[in-house]
Simulated assay, not measured.
Amino acid sequence: MQWFAAYEVTDGGTRRTIPIAEFERTLGANDERAAKLHAAITAPRPPLILGERTLRFDQPQVAGILNVTPDSFSGEAPADPVAAGVAMAAAGAALIDVGGESTRPGAAIVWEGDEVARTEPVVRGLATAGTLVSIDTRKAAVMESALAAGAAIVNDVAALLWDDRALEVVAKAGCPVVLMHSPDPAKGPHDGGTYANVLTDVFDWLEARIAAAVAGGVDRARIIVDPGIGFGKSLQENLSLLNGLAMFHGLGCPVMLGASRKRMIGALSNEAPADQRLGGSLALALKGAEAGVQVLRVHDVVETVQALKVWRGLRDQALVGR
């Protein structure tokens, strides 16, 4: 559903535009790094075959956020989280992302036993209902519990750096994993945050984490990357990442965007509270879709799915003409 006609190349502080038709002659044949990035950007992202479910990446997919924590920034956990997750799947979410520990700034660390107690029954209930589930955790014990209960994907805000066993657990399970950027994940998702150039710094960091995961036994074809909007970044840095999202296709992995109800929306709209950020969330979701993001992690599934259907209708019409 996406196409582009040229690259903007930044080299030594200078910028130039190279049309795709001239890429091989002017850059690709002489620059191994540029050729590698071009191949990564343009290669199709194969689907993930996960038991009886398939997660495709040839169009934007919605991952519904299901927090079962008492202190989530986005509001209280639903009274019946399994029913809530099934409802999100019925509304069009391809994946339900279950989390038992808040990662908002200042949130307390949850003991892994409590996190397992919160998430395992929900994961099991959703998996039994036939819903594709990911577990949003940075703790190996929680990953193991959720995978045993039927989760298919691990989504780690610490990119497998918080828990010394996390990489081993994911590699042994052979499951897909989402590697998210944060400045110093061993300390916490919001620590640090000094960048020379936030786009290239985050890109290079994720590239290194992909290499480390592959070296640890994870199949590269089962890695998804997330630039970590709101984690250790200022408003301006978040905006730079969002404007430069297409660059992350150069990593050669599907991209997840989690910008739903984030604080930056309030910062741009008179400090609107988290439950009044739907408009901003939809704007950022469509920004991600325009940039070719494959997975949009959102709270408001019904509204996002509808927005994407309209977006896709516009793209279909643009392809076939008037």
Results as ranks from 00 to 15, higher is better:
Arg118Gly: 00
Asp97Ala: 02
Gly130Gln: 11
Ala79Gly: 15
Ala84Tyr: 00
Val98Cys: 09
Ala87Trp: 07
Arg118Ser: 02
Met88Tyr: 01
Val86Glu: 14
Ala117Asp: 15
Leu132Phe: 04
Pro70Met: 13
Ile65Arg: 01
Leu132Met: 15
Glu112Leu: 05
Leu95Arg: 09
Ala107Glu: 07
Arg124Ser: 15
Gly99Met: 04
Thr131Leu: 06
Gly113Ile: 00
Asp80Leu: 05
Ala87Met: 04
Asp71Gly: 10
Thr103Gln: 00
Ala90Asp: 14
Gly85Ile: 00
Val62His: 00
Pro60Met: 00
Val133Asn: 05
Ala87Leu: 08
Ile135Lys: 13
Glu112Ala: 12
Arg124His: 13
Ala117Cys: 07
Ile109Gln: 03
Ile65Ser: 02
Leu126Ser: 10
Asp136Gly: 05
Asp97Glu: 05
Gly92Met: 10
Gln61Ile: 02
Ala87Phe: 04
Pro70Glu: 14
Val110His: 02
Ser72Cys: 13
Ile135Thr: 12
Pro70Tyr: 11
Asp136His: 03
Gly92Asp: 06
Thr131Trp: 02
Gly113Asp: 14
Glu112Gly: 00
Thr131Tyr: 09
Glu112Tyr: 09
Arg104Asp: 13
Ala91Ser: 08
Phe57Ile: 15
Val62Asn: 02
Trp111Pro: 00
Leu126Asp: 05
Asp71Tyr: 07
Ala77Tyr: 08
Gly64Pro: 06
Ser72Pro: 07
Pro105Gly: 14
Gly64Lys: 01
Gly75Thr: 08
Ser134Pro: 06
Gly130Trp: 01
Val123Glu: 07
Glu101Arg: 07
Asp71Gln: 07
Leu95Gln: 08
Ala127Gln: 12
Phe73Asn: 12
Glu76His: 09
Ala90Pro: 03
Gly113Gln: 09
Gly106Ser: 12
Trp111Asn: 13
Asp58Tyr: 05
Gly99Asn: 03
Asp114Lys: 03
Val122Pro: 10
Arg124Gly: 03
Ile109Asn: 04
Glu101Val: 04
Ala63Met: 15
Ile135Asn: 12
Val123Asn: 09
Asp136Thr: 05
Val98Thr: 02
Val123Ala: 12
Ala108Pro: 10
Arg104Met: 09
Pro121Cys: 10
Arg124Leu: 01
Asp114Ala: 11
Gly99Cys: 05
Gly125Pro: 07
Val68Cys: 12
Ser134Val: 06
Arg118His: 04
Ala129Gln: 11
Thr131Gln: 14
Ala90Ile: 02
Gly99Phe: 13
Arg118Trp: 03
Ala90Val: 02
Val122Met: 11
Val98Lys: 10
Ala87Asp: 14
Arg56His: 12
Val98Trp: 01
Leu66Pro: 11
Ala129Asn: 14
Val116Gly: 08
Gln59Phe: 02
Pro78His: 09
Ala94Asp: 06
Gly75Asn: 14
Ala90Met: 02
Pro60Ala: 09
Glu112Trp: 03
Ile96Met: 05
Ala63Glu: 08
Glu120Ser: 13
